[in-house]
């Protein structure tokens, strides 16, 4: 367990996320004290959701036959800027073409951190950063 980088230890220790991922559904979740939006039977968005030390603006979890997609949005960009601290890796860093919005360029950066084993599944992790949204941590779980 402790071979996992710090952020994935946060994820692994979160009981709600753990239940959703390991059960591949939301049926055993107690939604009573959660701020959430049900988008589909197997697709929820949790608002102001605490994972580890950071309260994420939103966490969307989509369960499909092909994967489980977890997208964690935060205005705190430290996860992107300090990858070694939270993910033990720099990852592959790159910038794609920017967007033009009202003539203003909006840049976006990505770190492709790579694969880990989490909840006995392959978890592929990438980070995004942009002035548009702050930081997004994406975890894709694959069998």
């Amino acid at each position: 367990m402790h071979d996992l980088p710090l952020f994935l230890r946060f994820v692994e220790s979160n009981e709600i996320i753990k239940k959703i991922i390991t059960n591949r559904d939301f049926s055993n979740i107690n939604f009573k004290n959660l701020d959430f939006i049900k988008e589909w039977d197997n697709q929820y968005v949790f608002k102001n959701f605490l994972v580890g030390e950071v309260k994420f603006t939103s966490i969307r979890i989509i369960i499909t036959p092909d994967n489980i997609a977890v997208s964690m949005l935060s205005t705190d960009i430290k996860y992107f800027d300090e990858p070694l601290t939270y993910f033990d890796r720099e990852g592959i860093f790159y910038e794609k073409e920017p967007y033009l919005i009202n003539g203003h360029e909006l840049r976006e950066f990505r770190r492709k951190i790579g694969s880990f084993t989490l909840f006995n599944m392959t978890a592929k992790l990438s980070l995004l950063k942009s002035a548009l949204y702050g930081c997004i941590i994406k975890i894709g779980f694959y069998n």
Binding site: K96, E97, Y99, L100, E105, E108, S130, L132
Partner: peptide, 9 residues
Amino acid sequence: VNGAKDPDF
């Protein structure tokens, strides 16, 4: 889009 490589938006 402003180039050949899409942002991940």
